[in-house]
């Protein structure tokens, strides 16, 4: 009672963040009992620092992230195989080049997209300029634009409100 929905969301965000970090703490201490006592101090401190560095800004839904994981792993496997094949090939088939792409994602989203694209086959983010992502591509003959569009749509869906996909 008396709490605005916004505050309610923020509190929920803080609790979720705290639970996640508590889980990480239990993993790191292997569930040791004396570790749990120290965790009572460490987890709240880490949660505070985490919220300070990255304020709660709308729910990124963990289950949506989990749903994206298999596809991401498969495509980063393709990315690794692709670059390994090019590295070992005697003639080293490369056709490097540059691309620029406008992105509707906010700042943090662009960084995440850049990090993800750097693990996908043939693309590497090299910062952004005026809202446009600068990308280095390993092979200009492959369809790099499709890769970018696909990854951007996936990340955008991750942060979208419930009910919209």
């Amino acid at each position: 009672m008396g709490r605005t929905p916004r505050q309610h969301d923020r509190a929920r965000g803080a609790v979720k963040r705290g639970l996640l970090l508590a889980f990480v703490w239990v993993v790191l201490t292997a569930g040791a009992r004396d570790g749990l006592i120290l965790g009572l101090a460490v987890v709240p401190a880490a949660t505070w620092l985490s919220l300070h560095l990255l304020p709660y800004g709308g729910a990124v839904r963990l289950w949506r992230l989990a749903a994206l994981l298999p596809g991401f792993l498969a495509r980063s496997l393709v990315g690794g195989l692709d670059v390994a094949w090019r590295a070992f090939h005697p003639r080293m088939p490369l056709a490097p080049g540059w691309m620029e792409r406008a992105s509707r994602l906010p700042d943090g989203g662009r960084v995440a997209l850049g990090g993800e694209l750097s693990l996908m086959p043939g693309t590497l983010a090299a910062g952004s300029r005026g809202g446009r992502i600068i990308l280095h591509v390993l092979d200009t003959t492959q369809d790099n634009a499709a890769t970018i569009t696909r990854e951007e749509a996936r990340l955008a869906a991750l942060a979208a409100p419930e009910g919209r996909s």
């Binding site: 990315g79 390994a84 590295a87 750097s118």
Partner: peptide
């Protein structure tokens, strides 16, 4: 493969591709 790419690839950016993707795998 990441190390071979680092040594063989022609420029900084192509080398980064090799290091990031291959070493991650």
């Amino acid at each position: 493969a990441g190390t071979v790419g680092l040594i063989r690839f022609p420029d900084t950016f192509s080398r980064l591709h090799a290091l990031t993707k291959a070493d991650n795998l």
